[in-house]
């Protein structure tokens, strides 16, 4: 009896977490998966939702657009972040902490405020656009922020602080001795980074890639504010299926969510394969 009471006490400690996880993580997830295989009228098993997604151009374009902007902004962001973190990794003192503060501040600068700031900058009546018109600098004067390519700059913007902050600790893994040993063997610094530095950092780089990818994929506020439905992207489409002004289609929305989930899982699977390849030597 005493033991039972004790065990009961222990389980009570688990209850709050279990409640949240069960009712707001597991149940909705399962219900979403089930729903994706149901007609919206609620009757019977169907693959219709998935068939629609892979047949109707509207959804295919959404997937294509999403993949394009996600992958490209992740890669471009990662390259910028890599060199920035490299430049910062050897710095010390005040200058570095000032730069880190800037990164920390801008890493929280996202969503609606960020998009508004970019509208002020590059929107139809944006400051840079107006100035460019005055001085006749055409590439900027005709900048169209309200397009996939136009939004790209915002995606890259929010990938910079996040990725750099994540990459910085990875540079500490590259030991000074390796650089010096390579240098004494007449290796130039490009050779060092390609053959030793980057392979050693690869697990960290891939982890950062995952975070940036997930971050870009789930970006909602920016496209919703800038292009809404004129250019379709997965997150906007999914939300529309549940809370849109037109007819709500939770079945299709669930199926789209699952597609998005699959994209994440495939991406994580691929980076894990890559990671394993690079971890060969470094793990005991």
């Amino acid at each position: 009896m005493k033991n039972f009471k004790k065990a009961g006490g222990r389980i009570a400690f688990f209850l709050p977490l279990a409640f949240i996880i069960l009712f707001f993580e597991c149940v909705p997830l399962v219900s979403m998966i089930v729903k994706s295989f149901l007609e919206d009228s609620g009757s019977g098993f169907t693959l219709n939702n998935f068939i629609q997604i892979f047949q109707k151009p509207a959804y295919l374009v959404a997937i294509k657009n999403t993949l394009w902007i996600t992958i490209l902004s992740t890669v471009v962001g990662l390259i910028i972040d890599f060199f920035l973190a490299m430049a910062l990794s050897r710095d010390t003192g005040k200058k570095k902490s000032l730069y880190l503060s800037l990164l920390n501040l801008t890493s929280n600068f996202s969503g609606v405020p960020l998009s508004i700031a970019f509208i002020t900058l590059l929107g139809t009546a944006g400051v840079f656009v107006l100035i460019s018109k005055q001085i006749g600098f055409t590439p900027l004067a005709s900048y169209n922020l309200y397009s996939l390519k136009g939004m790209f700059i915002i995606y890259v913007y929010f990938q910079i602080p996040m990725g750099t902050l994540l990459l910085l600790p990875t540079f500490d893994k590259v030991r000074k001795e390796w650089k010096e040993a390579a240098r004494l063997m007449n290796a130039r610094s490009v050779r060092f980074w390609l053959q030793i530095g980057i392979p050693v950092m690869m697990p960290g780089i891939l982890g950062t890639f995952n975070m940036l990818f997930a971050n870009a994929l789930a970006t909602y506020a920016t496209p919703y504010l800038l292009v809404n439905n004129s250019i379709s992207l997965l997150p906007v489409k999914i939300v529309d299926m549940f809370v849109g002004d037109v007819k709500q289609r939770p079945g299709l929305g669930s199926a789209l969510s699952i597609v998005m989930l699959l994209i994440v899982m495939i991406e994580i699977g691929l980076t894990n394969l890559c990671k394993r390849h690079f971890e060969r030597g470094t793990k005991r």
């Binding site: 030991r175 001795e177 130039r188 392979p199 050693v200 030597g281």
Partner: peptide, 19 residues
Amino acid sequence: ARLRQIGMVFQQYSLFPNM
């Protein structure tokens, strides 16, 4: 340093771990 033709052994951990 690259051109001095000098070999060096460090205190520790100087081997390239990915090779």
